[in-house]
Amino acid sequence: MLKFLLAVDGSDVSNKAVLDFIKLLDWYKETPEIHLVNVQHPLHGNAPMLIDKVRINEYHQEKGMKELQAARETMNKAGANYQFHIIVGDPAEMILRYGSEKQCDQTILGPRKLGAVKGLLLGSVASKVMQLSTIPVLLMKS
């Protein structure tokens, strides 16, 4: 079965990308299995030393569920075949690793709109994924 990784960060652009992608599902001969992947930034500094792992995970989980909510509603409404995942780490790196390790067939994401200068200075998760991905990447431009 086709396995798609759909990156979700809860932003408007990302939620719009999910909405747009659902409409493209007819493009595919078989119904793909969609994996909503949400990546949470790790905590740095003193927090990991002082707070136990269980509670830090709960914190990431709660934030992740919030960011996934709109995308999940869209999926439910469309009756799509999907799973969701919350992963802690660098967003671009985790999306890349998830895609290759779980043998996904395609990564889909909605690139954040940065101006020319900002885009040049910062790069975005999307541009890093595009450059380094070993599987096809679909950018949902809107």
């Binding site: 002082l50 136990d52 792992k53 269980v54």
Partner: peptide, 16 residues
């Protein structure tokens, strides 16, 4: 210490 990432499965287990 500031530059270290969140340990993936270390963490502090005492104050649960």
């Amino acid at each position: 210490k500031l530059l270290q990432p969140e340990p993936e499965n270390g963490g502090h287990e005492i104050n649960a």
